[in-house]
């Protein structure tokens, strides 16, 4: 890994790239981290919806810095000390930063948690709001 440059490095790199292209499916190539988010945009409102099953409002931390939104949430383990027949659910602390394409108004952020879905409402900053131009 820390060797000197070799002409064949590029050849191998290309071979690996081709191998990866054919071995991976489209689904595995698209790696997304938990929490999964969907972003909706309407006029001057941006809506971010994240999946958060089993997360209470105290365990969510939403931060806005410039136009970067950081969501940190803890899904607390609710394992009972009992014999388990099936264990499929996942727990832990998840953190994700989303870079928003617009400057948002830091005073108009509204986050709510409902039925395991975290909804963050943001409003575009005055400067980037769509404006109607009147023709004289």
């Amino acid at each position: 890994m820390f060797g000197t440059y070799d002409l064949f490095d590029d050849v191998f790199a290309l071979r690996n790239l081709v191998d990866r292209f054919f071995n991976e499916t489209a689904f595995s190539r698209q790696r997304v981290d938990f929490p999964y988010v969907n972003i909706y945009e309407k006029d001057d409102e941006i809506l971010v919806r994240a999946i958060a099953p089993g997360v209470t409002a105290q365990d969510v931390d939403v931060q806005l810095m410039d136009n970067t939104l950081t969501i940190e949430m803890t899904c607390k383990e609710d394992y009972a000390n009992q014999p388990y027949l099936r264990k499929e659910r996942e727990f832990g602390t998840f953190r994700k930063s989303i870079q928003l394409p617009y400057q948002v108004d830091p005073n108009k952020v509204d986050a709510s948690l409902n039925n395991g879905i975290l909804t963050i409402k943001l409003s575009k900053h005055e400067a980037v709001k769509p404006r109607k131009i009147t023709i004289k």
Partner: peptide
């Protein structure tokens, strides 16, 4: 997740939304 206690079986399912 499914676990068993002396008196019951408890089933927990993640169903957001």
């Amino acid at each position: 997740d499914i676990y068993e206690t002396d008196n019951e079986y408890v089933l927990k399912a993640d169903m957001p939304g």
